[in-house]
């Protein structure tokens, strides 16, 4: 037990676990509707889109880069799909085109960062801008309502008592976990993030790794965008905007280092849940939606501060220990 506690304390997501536990306890105490089956399902359902978005972003941040375009990309894919469905294309084809569009955004980001060598957050902020502009063009300033039932089922359908979207998110998380922890690509991504030069000299295909990470992020953004559209049964050019920041927050709050190479999907799940619970509680308490970005922004800064503090403390411990081991 003691050993287990020690591993937990050493893990990068230590503060995220504590944060999640704290938020969970506080939420159950101050809001009595919080700990009901229905509300837990609601929290999970609200969290699933954020969760899907953040799994892809985790891969990018693990390489030490940033992708600020995920919110807008999910919006763009949602808009494209809605227009195609309205035009009467079959649903599987629409899904395929959606995924392709997401992957293309990923390739574009990979090109700007890997080939042109722009700083990733400048490149992806630019992509964000272009993609958001494209959504406006595609929607012609309109909102599309009333999509086919077969499509909206993915967002609103149930499997037994559990919404399909939760199961879907779980599957994505498991796939991402396996990709990052159990495959060569995953190891390459970690290697790229912890030391790019060392990775290059160890014959890690660095360009391919970077492109893969951005494509993963583009694909998850596409999936999230389609589910969002299915769940809302509508599409609007700005629907992905609020997710941009929350996604970054979820990954960072989950203990994945902005410098790359440290962290992972487990932490991201914790981070996404923590943020979703906070937003859920604010909704239950009836706090103005204007105030919600403030709380999310505050949580990001505080969690990153804790994280940076604990990392520095750990580093000094390691440094002090070194002479003894020699």
């Amino acid at each position: 037990m003691k050993k287990y506690m020690e591993t937990l304390r050493r893990s990068q997501s230590f503060y995220s676990y504590i944060g999640l536990a704290l938020v969970f306890i506080i939420a159950s105490v101050i809001v009595k509707e919080f700990l009901t089956f229905d509300n837990i399902i609601t929290v999970l359902r609200q969290g699933s889109i954020l969760l899907i978005l953040s799994t892809g972003l985790t891969a990018v941040i693990l390489t030490g880069n940033m992708d600020l375009s995920v919110g807008a990309s999910s919006g763009l894919v949602g808009c494209i799909c809605a227009q195609l469905l309205r035009a009467g294309l079959p649903i599987p084809l629409v899904f395929l085109i959606g995924l392709l569009a997401g992957a293309l955004v990923g390739v574009f980001n990979g090109f700007l960062v890997g080939i042109v060598k722009l700083p990733s957050f400048v490149a992806t902020y630019g992509t964000n801008w272009v993609v958001a502009g494209l959504s406006i063009i595609i929607m012609h300033g309109d909102i599309i309502y009333g999509l086919p039932k077969g499509f909206t089922w993915f967002g609103t359908g149930y499997v037994g008592p559990i919404p399909f979207i939760i199961i879907f998110a779980l599957v994505i998380v498991i796939i991402a976990y396996i990709l990052l922890q159990k495959t060569t690509l995953g190891r390459d991504i970690y290697a790229y993030g912890s030391n790019k030069d060392a990775a290059l000299f160890s014959a890690v295909p660095i360009k391919k790794t970077l492109f893969s990470a951005f494509i993963m992020s583009g694909l998850t953004a596409a999936i999230a965008g389609m589910l969002m559209t299915a769940r809302l049964n509508a599409a609007d050019a700005t629907m992905g905007d609020t997710y941009g920041l929350q996604t970054v927050a979820a990954v960072v709050v989950g203990g994945t280092s902005m410098l790359g190479g440290e962290g992972g999907i487990t932490g991201t799940v914790i981070g996404a849940m923590l943020l979703t619970i906070i937003v859920n509680v604010m909704n239950l308490l009836g706090i103005s939606s204007f105030a919600q970005p403030m709380v999310v922004g505050f949580v990001i800064v505080v969690m990153v501060l804790f994280d940076s503090y604990s990392r520095r403390k750990q580093n000094t411990v390691v440094r002090r220990k070194q002479p003894q081991t020699n």
Binding site: F121, L245, V248, G297, V304, L305, R312
Partner: peptide
């Protein structure tokens, strides 16, 4: 706090927007 400036200021951006 030694945290990346763009994360700190991204947080601040949202706090200010809310206000």
């Amino acid at each position: 706090g030694k945290i990346p400036p763009f994360i700190a200021t991204l947080g601040m951006q949202n706090i200010l927007n809310s206000i």
